[in-house]
Amino acid sequence: MTRTHHLHPFTALTAAVGAAVVTTAAASWPLSAAVAVAAAILAVRGGVAGRVLSAAAVILVPLCLSLLVLHGLFFPEGHTVLAEWGPARVTAEGLEFALELGTRTTACVLVFLLFSFTVSVPDLLSALAARRIPPQFGFVLASTLTLLPAVAGRLDRIRQAQEARGMVVRGGLLSRMGTLRLQMVPLVLALMDDAGSRAQALDARGFGNAGPRTSYRDVADSTAQRRFRAAALVLTAAAVVARLVVSWPAGVTR
């Protein structure tokens, strides 16, 4: 946890983007698997393994299953038939392609989840502001990251108030939909009202000002991190170029 906080948010971002791009460009399942495992290890060491892995499971399990069904059973270019049921053919090429795509996606998803669960949002905002990125962009980014918990908290309060007035929440889908409908009206009204008064407050505090800004938060950066970022960018660019060079003739002749 403390280790990741010493990283400048741009360093972590560069590393994440670099890893994802290189993995995609290399298109080699052992590398993808290695990147995925490395991300998982970092998640464990960062103390966010639970959240990263459960979020990843939600995204990846259905995706990998569908890849397996789609390419494992119906891969038109497959020659080495391992098994056959009517139109469905399990081919070695199909399985390999599914493995390839599956590990690559897994690596990218894990890397980005790791980044988003370990980055300090205030640090990121402050770093963005220092690069003259409009603060409104940072505000939208931060609000998006904080909106979901805020909405969930408010929905919970509304549900409690309604239960206190005799609304019995049962397990059934129809009952749940019915109660959700009742909760939407106060939720939307409350959020709109919040947004209105928040806008006035932000205006009064100079948020709409054009022109330069300063930042109270001091985000630590170092020469080593700057060098790392430069090197990572060069490496990433090189990987993309190499990939283009290698596949170019094949792409033309195909």
Binding site: S120, P122, P135, F139, S143, S197, A201, R205, G211
Partner: peptide, 22 residues
């Protein structure tokens, strides 16, 4: 309703208006 909601600490929230005025 006065707070920006995007600042992580009391100190940064206090500074928000000053940041915007550079």
């Amino acid at each position: 309703a006065m707070l920006s909601t995007v600042r992580a600490t009391v100190a940064e929230e206090l500074a928000f208006g000053l940041e915007n005025r550079a």
